[in-house]
Design a protein around this nucleic acid. Structure first.
Lengths: 190, 190
DNA sequence: GTCTATACTGTGATAGAC
DNA sequence: GTCTATCACAGTATAGAC
């Protein structure tokens, strides 16, 4: 059975996101893949390299989304479209987002985490650009951290059997409400 | 300098919540406390004992809140009052809540985590009691995970300087909106 | 590309002196 | 109540055979 690097990447991602990077040993990853530790280290020269490989595709995609966003002018329709794009992103890369959200601070000094932090700053500047009020910043944090948590705990929150389309629609609803733009003059939600 | 067990508890809590339980060594805790590993193990006979000591006070408080809640009959006023109580809880025990939310799954088989899981189930049953719809469950998850994340990342979300009362009011606002009860007949939010 | 064997370091925990 | 010394083990990583 020829083992591909992608198999290892997927296994490592699942373990890092659920058990945690530090709590996951190369031995465990090797066992899950049916390999020895050394074979894992043949595909990825270190545990940190494997970590970077797990999160990089999500960062590439987020960078692409933000680049396109910042090239456009802001409009209400654009914001709605972006929110749908953001929801799709977070659904597709829920494990990567959850890993970064929860373990980012403990993975400082890993280069790929710095890159992720930069992307979050760009994202928050977009969502809270109008007012920058404390509540706006709190809403952004709750939306990001809450969605990442909730999607990765669907089983313990007892809705694991929901069809993906229903989950998607509900998440768009919730985030639209949570991140509704604020009129900087009247400070009312639009 | 006489070191108290409470000092160690506070240091361990901060490290477990930010760096993670597995990534935090007894050596590091000892260093931060100005002690040797052995002295730490004099106060807490194992790392796991220390973990339990960090989270137990929060669980005691949550249990007290839920016991009182379930002894009352449900009313709109009661729900509003409970939400304020819940916000105060999460503000006071933000580190403990964040630790459980993010690392709970990786700390399976630690008895104190089982206790915490039971409390979350009781809490979710209260908030989503009316409909039990997928969106309700998602809203509860986002509120819980989002608040825990946001409050522990106030610095990186750039509102660390906000007065606590402002944070409290904003959080009550957001969670009231997010967890507004649903009329089981019309399925409209009240 | 996978393995066994090995080196080295860090970790949780114990024993016993002070 | 704190320390040093030590233990047993798990962890990442390397060397080299197949």
């Amino acid at each position: 059975m020829s083992t591909s690097s992608d198999d290892l990447r997927a296994i490592a991602l699942a373990e890092f996101a659920t058990a945690g990077y530090s709590a996951t040993s190369l031995h465990r990853i090797a066992d899950l893949a049916g390999l020895s530790k050394s074979s894992v280290l043949y595909h990825y020269s270190s545990k940190e390299t494997l970590l970077e490989a797990t999160i990089a595709p999500a960062l590439d995609r987020m960078e692409q989304i933000l680049d396109a966003l910042e090239a456009r002018t802001l409009s209400p329709e654009g914001r709605t479209a972006f929110l749908a794009e953001f929801v799709d992103f977070i659904l597709q890369y829920r494990l990567e987002v959850n890993m970064f959200i929860n373990q980012g601070p403990s993975l400082v000094d890993v280069p790929v985490i710095d890159r992720a932090n930069d992307l979050v700053v760009r994202l928050s500047e977009y969502f809270a650009a109008n007012t920058g009020s404390v509540e706006e910043k709190m809403r952004f944090g709750i939306a990001l951290g809450g969605a990442a948590y909730m999607l990765c705990r669907a089983d313990s929150l007892n809705f694991e059997s929901a069809p993906i389309e229903q989950t998607r629609v509900a998440l768009v609803n919730i985030l639209t409400e949570l991140l509704a733009p604020v009129d900087p003059i009247t400070t009312n939600r639009i």
